[in-house]
Design a protein around this nucleic acid. Sequence first.
DNA 1: CGGTTTTGACCCGCGC
DNA 2: GCGCGGGTCAAAACCG
Length: 165
Amino acid sequence: MSSPKYSTQQDTTQLSDYAPDQLSNFELSEFLTFDEWIELEDAPSSMASGSAHNPVYRAHVVGESAGSSSPREELSGGEGEGGREKKEAKERVAFKTKSEIEILDDGYKWRKYGKKMVKNSPNPRNYYRCSVEGCPVKKRVERDRDDPSYVITTYEGFHTHQSFS
DNA sequence: CGGTTTTGACCCGCGC
DNA sequence: GCGCGGGTCAAAACCG
């Protein structure tokens, strides 16, 4: 509901610096299985102060640790179609970034489709989805429970179209 | 006008 | 068998 305090622009300068396209490729190329946050060393060359270390953590959550291999195939919801395709292993990449805003513009258009409160955390969980049709990419944004200053963005799936920067 | 957002309700899978 | 949790979708409202 509105976040009057949050400016539309904000100083997302540092945030926009990371290219989603490039980043995605990088991630896709590598199979990640990190159960912990890995600090990415950003090159804040443009950082005048330099002291502002942009803490970006990358973690790949494989989940599906034996057991639930098929969380959800498709939301039939009245769809009697028989064409069911096996879903490929959808990668789940979690990014932890220090930011006051959760809506970080990564170059893609996202449409919010749900908000849920997490038990154990006063922070709500936002669900975003790519506005582009055919893009099974989903984004989950949640604030760090320990550090509200940090935002955990979890990307699911992969974009099938070029990023519109 | 289009697109998007927002809240609630609904649904599914799994657990016990 | 039933309940819980999480996740998703839908309609309406709002914005640019």
